[in-house]
């Protein structure tokens, strides 16, 4: 059972997330061997930039969408345990994570719609189509993990994996989760909503701080989504020798590294092809996985 967490953890959490996100972005730039992709310098460059507003834009909606993304990402992370402690181990933590992550739908669409620009509009709508594709297999995957522990509390899910990691006996759910982690953060092969072919899509018209907040929020969401796979499928802080928090960090780093590597190896996935795969292959597969887990739960 998770121990109580001091309140100052609340203040630390956002900084840790930002640091991990910066580190991941650095690693990504390193792998691309592209000196132009340095995240720190990019932030500074955008900080001195003037903000801009497109002709007849809906300023309120744009701003709301931009700001919502990092807020949702950080709020989702309250249930994320470092070792065996999270900022708040909510009784329905998995549902909370799901709810916060789904706010990205609204965020990206609003940011895409607001600027009154064709390309950003296309980007925003692309994310809705993407959501329809990744979300259902994703929800089935996280419920499968909850089913394995018979609890919606993330701490209980971690405890249930003191012996065998869920990733071992629910491999399909784990792989589906990783796919959807990239999908929900519209990152890597799933970056079509902010794709280069639409000149940045939902982010095409954002400059200055707006751009930092939106694209930074996307990195945060990506880090949080990837990190949640550790307590749900990779045994959280469980592991020999090292303390729990070290294991959590190690495993999170490994998952992030894997996903960053995948991004280099795979072309962008367009939803008009992926939706079919998601519904005809991934959804039945996830349901089958849930059935297997349910049978195991019944017989123990």
């Amino acid at each position: 059972m998770a121990e109580t967490t001091p309140l100052w953890a609340v203040a630390v959490l956002p900084f840790v997330l930002v640091l991990v996100a910066l580190g991941t972005a650095h690693f990504d730039a390193l792998l691309a061997a592209d000196p132009a992709a340095n995240p720190g310098r990019e932030v500074l460059r955008l900080l001195v930039q003037q903000r801009r507003r497109t002709n007849a834009a809906d300023e309120l909606l744009t701003r709301l969408g931009v700001v919502l993304l990092p807020v949702a990402a950080v709020l989702a992370a309250v249930v994320l345990p470092l070792g065996f402690r999270s900022v708040s181990d909510l009784a329905d933590g998995i549902v909370w994570f799901n709810a916060m992550e789904a706010l990205a739908w609204a965020a990206v669409w609003l940011a895409g719609w607001g600027p009154n620009s064709t390309l950003s509009l296309i980007g925003g709508y692309r994310f809705l189509a993407q959501g329809l594709a990744y979300e259902l297999p994703h929800m089935l995957a996280i419920t499968t993990a909850a089913l394995g522990a018979e609890s919606l509390r993330v701490g209980d899910v971690v405890d249930a994996q003191s012996g065998l990691w869920f990733a071992v006996w629910m491999p399909a759910a784990f792989v589906i989760y990783l796919l959807s982690a990239m999908g929900m953060a519209f990152w890597g092969p799933f970056d079509q909503p902010v794709g280069r072919d639409v000149a940045g899509g939902a982010a095409a018209e954002l400059s200055g701080v707006d751009r930092i907040v939106f694209l930074g929020g996307r990195w945060l969401l990506f880090v949080v989504a990837a990190a949640v796979s550790v307590p749900l499928f990779l045994g959280g802080g469980h592991g020999p020798l090292l303390p729990g928090w070290a294991w959590t960090l190690l495993k999170t780093a490994a998952v992030l590294a894997l996903l960053v590597w995948v991004r280099r190896r795979v072309p962008g996935v367009r939803m008009e092809r992926y939706v079919e795969l998601a519904w005809v292959v991934l959804t039945p597969l996830a349901i089958l996985q849930a059935l297997v887990v349910a049978l195991v739960v019944l017989n123990r």
Binding site: L47, Q50, R53, T54, N55, T118
Partner: peptide, 22 residues
């Protein structure tokens, strides 16, 4: 962050009525 941005940016007033990019 927005306050810092406003303080550091070379131009405090936003650029208005920009034609959308295509």
């Amino acid at each position: 962050l927005y306050v810092i941005g406003a303080a550091l940016s070379v131009e405090r007033e936003p650029l208005c009525d920009v034609p959308p990019f295509s």
